[in-house]
Design a protein around this nucleic acid. Sequence first.
DNA 1: ATGCATGGTACTGTATACAACAGAGCACAG
DNA 2: CTGTGCTCTGTTGTATACAGTACCATGCAT
Lengths: 236, 236
Amino acid sequence: MSRALEERRTSLMELRERRAHHGAAAEIAYWTIRDAIRLGVIRPGERLVEVELAAALDMSRTPVREALRRLEAERLVENVPRRGLVVPTITIDDLIEIYEIRGVLEGLAARRAAQRMGPAEIDALRETVERMERALAANDLAALGEASTQFHRLVRSGSRHARLPELISLLFDSHRSVGLHEFSPAERAVAAVQEHRAIYEAIARRDEEAAERLAREHSQNALRAQIIAHHLSEGS
Amino acid sequence: MSRALEERRTSLMELRERRAHHGAAAEIAYWTIRDAIRLGVIRPGERLVEVELAAALDMSRTPVREALRRLEAERLVENVPRRGLVVPTITIDDLIEIYEIRGVLEGLAARRAAQRMGPAEIDALRETVERMERALAANDLAALGEASTQFHRLVRSGSRHARLPELISLLFDSHRSVGLHEFSPAERAVAAVQEHRAIYEAIARRDEEAAERLAREHSQNALRAQIIAHHLSEGS
DNA sequence: ATGCATGGTACTGTATACAACAGAGCACAG
DNA sequence: CTGTGCTCTGTTGTATACAGTACCATGCAT
């Protein structure tokens, strides 16, 4: 038992190092625990005990509590009545909900981006699509994922919304398995890249309607890939 | 100075009483401060000082801090670098953003409600619309607002989403002035009631497309009324 | 008068101590 | 053997003490 705790302690300390954090202990606690959940160091269903975390992070309970309250507000951890704080387990229904909401939000972002992006931003978007296409040709899934993330970031930032990007991240980061397997079967990767290009083209020709519709469909398609992957991983 | 503090103290204590809160001090702090912001007891721009609030609520700083972190995560208060926690002031652009996002979310809720609501729920929705119509005829704005809130609550709950209602409230409750003046010029009240009926009818005939479109348009129209009111109140 | 240093003050951030409570194991009675 | 209650322990909730920091005002020098 103490062995497992010791392991977690070193894991958390490593995460803590990885990010070059500015002094505040509460901030360190927040990002470290957050990373630990997203990277699976702390797994769904596991309990989060304040003293343990505090010991692992080498600080008192106070900043840990603060971090936990924040994570709770963001639904990254859940306070189950007589069990304390746990990392929530995700269901297929949760995935469907998340992608559905994400779809309308990304749709809105794409619409606004089509209206508001400047020529330089549209250029950057095109380059990102081309980067995706090259990554696909090279069969480099890591680069593909990164370019895709970049693409969505550009669109969201092009929407000129303050809240929208934040809200989308809130959903997207709400559980470890969201966003995994985005390009998992090879045909999905091909389709996904085509979808990104289509969204880019709609934005480039200032076609709000199409941009919104395509972004929304893209989210639905990503959901389908996700569900298949989820089924497979559950079934194993 | 101490006079003003004393006044705030009694205001907060009154709010605290009003809600019959379950023991937890942090919970009490959260809801009381939240109410205080939404009701304007604490106004936009005002600073929130931990010791003051703790004194006013008759508890230590610890639960107050916890409540503040939660409110911060929900963007009800903002941590301005060298000024501490303040209640954010809302701009017209903020209003536009909020209503825009709210529009797509309510649109999604209405679409799902059209698919998923049971006959009993649709009946309840019809009754609520009729209640709105009676309130409008009687020129009872309070009843109108209440029925409208109920209408939206029914739709969101009928969407069978766990996250959607929560997310919408998050936006809606994000600032005091959001949702104010929903029915302020009389012609807006008339139009709003008609819009609610149209949404109800779309849901009743299971027309997802129309339900989504109408809900979204409804949000846009509410925004316009809101902006006019905002202008007037700023201009005074 | 203006710029700069220096103390004081008003906060926030963190640690620690203590209280309350719920759950697990154990003893004891039936 | 089983059920009931009791202590002991693990964990959270709250209070308080202490440290550090940034702002402000006052005084001094130029």
